[in-house]
């Protein structure tokens, strides 16, 4: 991302706030700052767009992870089997 200074906050801070907003952890004030920033800064606007899309895609894909316990069971099984 280009380091173009624009009104109120710079790009790195905007990106940081934007990432936070993806996890619903940005405050109201921070959200306002993002919107002000992307009004003036095209690269950040693109980044925000992509970032939001990524969040949506991940939510849509409904990914699941296996728990550590499950992994442990598998590891044990593999270990037992390969030492036999």
């Amino acid at each position: 991302m280009t380091k173009r200074k624009s009104l109120f906050i710079d790009c790195s801070e905007a990106a940081f706030n934007c990432d936070k907003a993806q996890y619903n952890e940005a405050s109201f004030y921070e959200k306002i700052k993002i919107h002000l920033h992307i009004l003036l800064c095209k690269p950040c606007k693109n980044y925000t767009k992509k970032n939001t899309k990524l969040t949506k895609l991940i939510a849509k894909s409904n990914l699941k992870t296996c728990s550590e316990d499950e992994k442990k069971v598998w590891k044990e099984e593999i270990k037992n089997q390969s030492t036999k």
């Binding site: 699941k64 992870t65 296996c66 992994k71 598998w74 590891k75 593999i78 390969s82």
Partner: peptide
């Protein structure tokens, strides 16, 4: 390398199976 299977592939296999 079976020792790395679980760490590397379990999430992928799991998502493949669960659907």
């Amino acid at each position: 390398d079976p020792t790395k299977w679980v760490d590397k592939y379990s999430d992928y296999l799991f998502n493949f199976t669960i659907v």
